[in-house]
Amino acid sequence: MTVVRGWPSLTVALNDRTSPARSFIQERFGRWQDLQARYREAVGPLAVPGGQANAGTIGCAFDWMVRFMVHPRPDLRLALIGVRIPLVRQAVHELARMLGYPDRDGSGGVGTAQFSGPVAGSEADHQLLARACWALALLTDLYRVGPTPGSPLMALAPRSITAEKLLDLASPAAVEELRALRASAERVLLPALAARRGAWALGPTFAGSSVMNADADLIAAGLLLELKTGLGSKRRDGTRRSSLEAPIIMQLLGYVLLDFSDEFAINAVGVYNARYAHLATWCLSELLAELAGRPVDVKEERAAFHDLLASGSA
């Protein structure tokens, strides 16, 4: 199948109301009001309030934290892609060795992205791991959005960066918030994933990702899972509530559609909001039928989405 390049990332496309990709998903699977109502009713109160740490970095750091919770040495290449200075790359490899990665020919291992799970997670000290995840999140942002004014990374002299200096970027407030988010995941998320035996993937990309850049958080034996740390909206009394927003639904569907070859055999999708210690999962075929208002042939929908991308009408 030949596909024309030139599309924005999936996230960007779904945030653009004029995007044909967004229209494709919304027109075919836009009946999500009942799903959203059920989600709101099921979610409990806020369990982990926000703190002084940057919310965006916390979200990315928690993604890294979960990867280490489900595998002892997750793939670190996402944090290395945006790094161009050799000494900084060396510091990341040094950090990897501190976390138990093997040293391969002096270069350091970058870890595993796909494996047969579930397996035991990292045995690294929890505080060390939280600080490391914060550093990996900052490095990931460097790749995703480029050098950002105000980023703690920008305050470091590139030629003097070491693993210890990367670890020192995490404030006590950031470490404490990640500790609380980890505790909720250990209580709610990990037990739910423990029964999912089969092929797992961390930060998976899809056949369609070469055209429309997209990488999900986690696939556990057919369950495509998005990790969220959003605080939710405020009620009139000042308390917070979580909601299943349309962009999140469309994002999950976008990942499913971009898996053109059914490489990951996705049969369920879900959202885990760590701040609410709430996990919601849905059988894919049942969810698609509800959102479409009719039985859905996933293979046909993927082919139609592929044809849309192949048209080059970004």
Rank of each mutant, 00 (worst) to 15 (best):
Phe305Gln: 00
Gly146Asn: 09
Leu287Cys: 03
Phe68Gln: 05
Tyr255Arg: 07
Val298Gly: 07
Asp75Leu: 15
Val3Asn: 05
Leu129Ala: 10
Leu14Gln: 01
Gly230Asn: 11
Ile219Ser: 09
Leu284Glu: 02
Lys228Ala: 13
Asp125Tyr: 02
Val271Asn: 02
Val83Lys: 02
Ala268Leu: 02
Leu257Gln: 08
Arg197Asn: 00
Gly203Trp: 08
Glu300His: 10
Arg241Ala: 14
Ala13Glu: 14
Arg17Asn: 09
Leu128Tyr: 03
Arg197Pro: 01
Ile81Ser: 05
Ala42Glu: 11
Val256Ala: 13
Val83Phe: 07
Ser122Asp: 03
Phe206Thr: 03
Leu80Cys: 13
Gly117Met: 05
Trp32Asn: 04
Tyr255Asn: 09
Leu95Arg: 02
Ile58Thr: 15
Ser243Met: 04
Gly106Lys: 05
Leu35Trp: 09
Pro118Ala: 10
Met1Gln: 11
Arg17Gln: 09
Pro247Val: 08
Ala246Lys: 03
His306Asp: 04
Thr148Val: 10
Gln52Cys: 01
Asp297Leu: 01
Gly44His: 09
Pro86Trp: 04
Thr229Phe: 00
Arg22His: 03
Arg196Tyr: 09
Pro102Asp: 14
Arg197Ser: 10
Ala132Asp: 04
Leu309Gly: 06
Pro158Ala: 11
Leu14Pro: 05
Arg275Ser: 09
Asp103Gly: 09
Phe206Lys: 04
Leu181Ser: 12
Pro86Phe: 02
Ala192Gln: 14
Leu10Arg: 07
Thr57Glu: 12
Glu41Pro: 01
Pro172Tyr: 07
His71Glu: 08
Gln52Gly: 03
Ala268Met: 06
Ala265Asp: 14
Thr11Gln: 12
Gly230Phe: 04
Glu94Gly: 15
Gly106Phe: 06
Phe24Arg: 00
Pro49Ala: 01
Val271Trp: 00
Glu27Met: 03
Ala183Ile: 01
Asp168Cys: 08
Glu263Lys: 14
